[in-house]
Design a protein around this nucleic acid. Structure first.
Lengths: 218, 218
DNA sequence: GGGCTCGTCCCCCAATCGGGGGAGAGCGGG
DNA sequence: CCCGCTCTCCCCCGATTGGGGGACGAGCCC
């Protein structure tokens, strides 16, 4: 087995840094910690200078966003891959991380051997996501390819309102919605008013935006 | 740890069935194979009669499709969860399997302990996907949520038009877009008119719908 | 210089939309 | 039986949007 994976650790907690160091200490032949940083600026300098294989990054990096740092690194030092280490096992964070160019998203409950394995995989170019999360996301992906969106917290929409909303999202005008549902335009407007109240918006495009963001509509 | 997970094995190869039996034999306290079948019909009868916790199913079940059997089982015996066991590590198959109501999709290279763990997870209601596949699917999911479908023909939008479009998708009004881009409202309207022409729509909500569907906007 | 696109801004007018009100029918729970 | 909710429809009015026109400067290519 080739050279060890060169890793830079970034976290604003001393303790976490020490913990990771200790965790990886037993795998000197496979992973080598070449640097560590406690702030975004420091991390940026370090990564630019050392160009490590992997940057292990906390999502919440003090006041700054780990995502910004990730974008910066993937832009400026493309050969370094960013892996987020987080306590949040929420799909949404993973989506954002991957969109920001991350090469992985692991939860802080990984143990040493697993972490080492993951780091090696990432260094090889694979994208690693914590299995639990990945499983859930796979389901999400399947639903998305099916054109189905997450029936998320429904904001108390009624059946009819949901129907109107899904047509609204489809880009139909009031008249078109009315025609499709065999209703008068006035009725559609009335449903829309209720919808706007519930979604806390003032117009249709904002309603569409919210619906998409929150995955309402069947 | 509670009662063992009751499993029915379905595969049209004697050898595979025997292999699985042998693989699971060492975990009698956690998994119990309560039946096995070599054809879809046989499997359907067996599952209906035994109502096992998990049905371990090959995707390619001779001439018949494992997917159909899966749909049948999830429809008729909802308390039995179907886990596909396959050699194909292609995301597409996983999507189809999950759409057919599967509770999991594993590759035939799993070893005994892993398989047992997965079966227990599925029995608990989790959806399990082989980690390698799940990771890839997570990436796909991230791209989908980003609206990156077919990185489609950009419809020849100019820089400015794209900026306006992305704010439009965010649900902003003309006035708000103008404020954000430091433009007059008239200019925004003018860009929007161009946008509508290029997207072949007549109003903003349809434009949003198209933009989302085709993944335009940066 | 002439032609081109892009980005900015303006006017006008009609269509659509948003917000306020109200009202009647049906349905289910208390 | 009455209350609340849903669904349907109506009127009015002001705000916003869509579609047509045109104009002007900057930059690019030939």
């Amino acid at each position: 087995m080739s050279v060890p994976v060169r890793v830079v650790l970034v976290d604003d907690h001393e303790m976490i840094l020490a913990g990771l160091q200790a965790m990886l200490a037993g795998f000197a032949g496979r992973v080598r910690v070449v640097g560590q940083a406690g702030t975004g600026d420091e991390a940026a300098r370090l990564v630019t200078a050392l160009r490590p294989d992997v940057v292990l990054l906390d999502v919440r990096l003090g006041p700054e966003s780990g995502l910004d740092l990730c974008r910066l690194i993937t832009g400026r030092v493309p050969e370094s891959r960013v892996v987020f280490l987080s306590v949040y096992d929420d799909e949404q964070y993973v989506f954002e991380a991957l969109r920001a160019g991350a090469g992985g998203y692991l939860l802080k409950r990984v143990d040493g051997p697993e972490l080492v394995r993951r780091l090696e995989e990432v260094a090889r170019g694979e994208t690693v996501v914590d299995p639990t999360l990945a499983g859930r996301m796979a389901v999400t992906a399947a639903r998305l390819t099916r054109g189905e969106f997450w029936p998320g917290a429904n904001r108390g929409l009624t059946q009819r309102e949901s129907e109107v909303l899904s047509l609204l999202v489809g880009g139909l005008s009031n008249k078109a919605i009315a025609a499709r549902l065999v209703l008068s335009e006035e009725t559609v407007k009335s449903h829309l008013r209720a919808l706007y109240r519930k979604l806390e918006v003032t117009d249709r495009s904002a309603a569409i935006a919210v619906a998409l963001r929150e995955g309402l509509f069947r």
